[in-house]
C-alpha cells in the first residue's frame, strides 16, 4: 500500500517536472519566434553621422580602444586644397609651414603635401590620429568641412553598446547596416 502511494507521488512529481520543462521550452521558442522576424535586416555596426557631429572631442576619450577607433577621414572631393587650411593650422599662425607649433593636430597626424601652386593636399595618418576632432572643427568652421570623423571598422570592436554612442552629446553615433558601414561626406549637406 505504502509503495503504491509513493509511486503515485513520484508520478506526480514527474508530471510537474515534465510540464515545467515543456512550458520553459515553449517560452524559449515563443521568445525566439517573437524576435526572429526582427533579425532580417542583417548585422549592424556603429557609425558617426558627420552632419550631426559637433566635434566635442569625446570620441578620443570615450572609445574602449586606446587610441580610439574613431579617426578623421578626408573627403578629398569636397576639399578646397587651401594653402591656409583651417583644419591644419592653428588660428592666427604667421608662417604657413609644417612646424609643430603651427599645427592644430595634437599628434601631427595630418600630412601636408604640395601639389601645385597654390594647392596643398592633406592626408590623415590613421596610426597617429586619435579622433579628437580638432581639425574637423577647424575645417568645418573655416573651410569646406571635408575633414570629418568616422568610425574605422578595421579598428572598431563593434561593442554591443558603443561607449562613445552613450556619451555623445549630439547623438551622432548610430547603428547602421553592416553592408553600408560608412557615412562619408559626399556632399555639403545631408541628402
Amino acid at each position: 500500500m505504502e509503495k503504491k502511494i509513493k509511486s503515485k507521488a513520484q508520478k506526480r512529481r514527474e508530471f510537474i517536472r515534465t510540464s515545467t520543462r515543456l512550458s520553459l521550452a515553449v517560452g524559449l521558442g515563443g521568445l525566439t519566434g517573437l524576435v526572429l522576424p526582427e533579425t532580417i535586416s542583417g548585422e549592424w555596426v556603429w557609425q558617426i553621422d558627420p552632419f550631426e557631429c559637433t566635434q566635442c572631442g569625446r570620441c578620443a576619450d570615450e572609445c574602449v580602444m586606446s587610441p580610439s577607433a574613431v579617426k578623421c577621414v578626408h573627403a578629398y572631393d569636397l576639399c578646397g586644397y587651401c594653402d591656409l587650411c583651417g583644419g591644419y593650422f592653428k588660428p592666427g599662425v604667421s608662417d604657413l609651414n609644417t612646424a609643430a607649433e603651427n599645427q592644430l593636430c595634437p599628434t601631427s597626424a595630418i600630412l601636408r603635401r604640395f601639389i601645385e601652386e597654390p594647392f596643398f593636399e592633406f592626408t590623415i595618418d590613421e596610426d597617429l590620429c586619435i579622433g579628437c576632432g580638432k581639425c574637423v572643427k577647424g575645417c568645418t568652421s573655416f573651410g569646406n568641412g571635408s575633414l570629418h570623423l568616422q568610425i574605422r571598422h578595421d579598428r572598431c570592436l563593434n561593442c554591443n553598446q558603443c561607449s562613445i554612442a552613450r556619451n555623445c552629446p549630439s547623438n551622432a553615433v548610430k547603428r547602421v547596416p553592416a553592408d553600408k558601414p560608412y557615412q562619408m561626406k559626399g556632399d555639403f549637406s545631408k541628402s
Binding site: Y76, I115, E116, R152, C156, N158, S189
Partner: peptide
C-alpha cells in the same frame, strides 16, 4: 558653423593630379 558649406571651390589641377578617394576598411 555647424554645417559645412562650400566656401572654397574645388580647384582645377593642371599638373594631372588625381583626387584620391578616402578608404573604407570593411567591418568583420
Amino acid at each position: 558653423m555647424l554645417f559645412a558649406q562650400q566656401r572654397f571651390p574645388r580647384p582645377d589641377f593642371e599638373s594631372g593630379y588625381q583626387v584620391p578617394s578616402p578608404t573604407t576598411p570593411e567591418p568583420r
